[in-house]
Design a protein around this nucleic acid. Structure first.
Lengths: 239, 239
DNA sequence: TTTCCACTCCCCAAAAATGGCGAGGAAGGC
DNA sequence: GCCTTCCTCGCCATTTTTGGGGAGTGGAAA
């Protein structure tokens, strides 16, 4: 990891990729070019689907999924609240579960140093692009300082492609809510009762119900709470 | 707009900014450096607040806000569904309202060419970074091809700073939920009724109520829906 | 050791939400 | 001109949620 390597060819390779396999090749090539242990692009959908493009050993991936580690992984939890790319050292590893998780990860070949970039797309899509390595703090600080900008761009391109392929697989996935429906759902999410919302919007409570039901239907939700949660995770309403 | 200009100093200026004024200075400087008409960073807040850092004439900004143009602006509507940076030519300007909007914009000094980059942060934050100019299609295509990567990075830095300043204004209120409470809230957000959730968790419905009420109390929520929305926007539960 | 907090269980009555029925006007796109 | 979507309104019965009580266990922290 001496001087800075030109990553331009990798960006172009990513840009030209026409299938998920292309991303995986680019991923491996990038790892080798940077001379680090692992790179993982991890994608979580609002529907709960996951797509991972990783150089981690399969045993770790399996274990991660089996243990539902995404619920305690400080990288996920921390990045979900931030916009900044973040060094793993700055995350909160104080909890008991977090420590056990870290130990387990190390034993499965995950390096001690990590740098993760959160990325968000439409409809509540959330992805993480992570570089991982085994080395001392100083070496790692040099590495991240040198490449952080390139990594942001690469993460962006990665996600762009992943979304592109996903859009091909699931066309017409998102139906938007009408302005009135958005108003209704937003006020409900803020804790107002139906009577209060109807009053706020200056409409009858029954009209309000029509909006709520219509939104529920569009979102494929089972009840109002579900509709709110769905609308929020798809980014249709903001609270 | 001949050869490519080095934008490194602008990135550093952005990185070093410690207040919103810094962003505005960087904005103007970037516009002059690139030799284009306008640059606008536009941020839509959770509460519906808007922050704009723009070189557009004030008359246009006022008109945009007064007319609630964000509801029909094809740039906003188009970018809200995409991840890609997008050239304005590729957006849908077919609607009647859209055409009137475009005409109005031109009359207020907005250029005919535009390139917008959508950016998303935590809690449904959404921002747009746009460069705008008056020129022919070919010139503009050259410009965007040359600078698209730099613009993505600049947009990213812009948003990072804007979020940073916003975070300072609203410090964290973090109170965690107990594991059982998280389970309960998560299942409720997935649309299950209390009876179903209680069954899923193998506890009585009354016990479940205790969790829900406890979570409501901790989150300062007025009802269950509000609690779910609050927990989601604070990242305490993931759906 | 005492004092928290998380977890578990129960009853009753009031308030809120949902399901199902139906109806009409206005605006914009093909 | 037709068709779709959006916005608006009403009533009744049923189901679900909520608010008010109270009670006992175990573990972890102070």
């Amino acid at each position: 990891m001496g001087g800075k390597v030109d990553l331009e060819p990798i960006l172009e390779e990513l840009d030209a990729a026409s299938a998920l396999e292309g991303l995986e090749q680019a991923n491996t090539r990038l790892r080798d070019t940077l001379g680090i242990d692992h790179i993982v692009y991890h994608w979580v959908d609002s529907a709960g689907d996951q797509y991972g493009c990783t150089t981690y050993p399969q045993s770790w991936v399996d274990r991660y999924l089996a243990e539902n580690y995404h619920r305690i992984d400080p990288v996920i939890l921390g990045c979900f609240q931030r916009f900044h790319p973040v060094d793993w050292k700055r995350l909160d590893w104080s909890g008991k579960a977090a420590k056990a998780f870290l130990k387990d990860a190390m034993e499965h070949g995950v390096g001690n140093q990590g740098f993760s970039i959160p990325i968000r797309g439409p409809n509540g899509q959330f992805a993480l692009f992570t570089v991982n390595n085994s080395c001392d703090d100083e070496t790692w600080a040099d590495f991240t300082a040198t490449y952080s900008r390139d990594l942001i761009l690469i993460a962006h391109y990665f996600n762009r492609k992943a979304l592109e392929f996903e859009a091909n697989r699931q066309p017409e996935f998102s139906r938007t809510l009408s302005p009135r429906e958005v108003d209704a759902m937003t006020l409900l999410a803020l804790g107002y009762s139906r009577a209060q919302v109807a009053h706020s919007l200056s409409i009858s409570e029954h009209t309000l119900r029509v909006y709520i039901e219509s939104a529920r239907f569009k979102l494929g939700a089972l009840n109002t709470t579900h509709a709110i949660a769905t609308a929020m995770s798809r980014g249709l309403i903001v609270v």
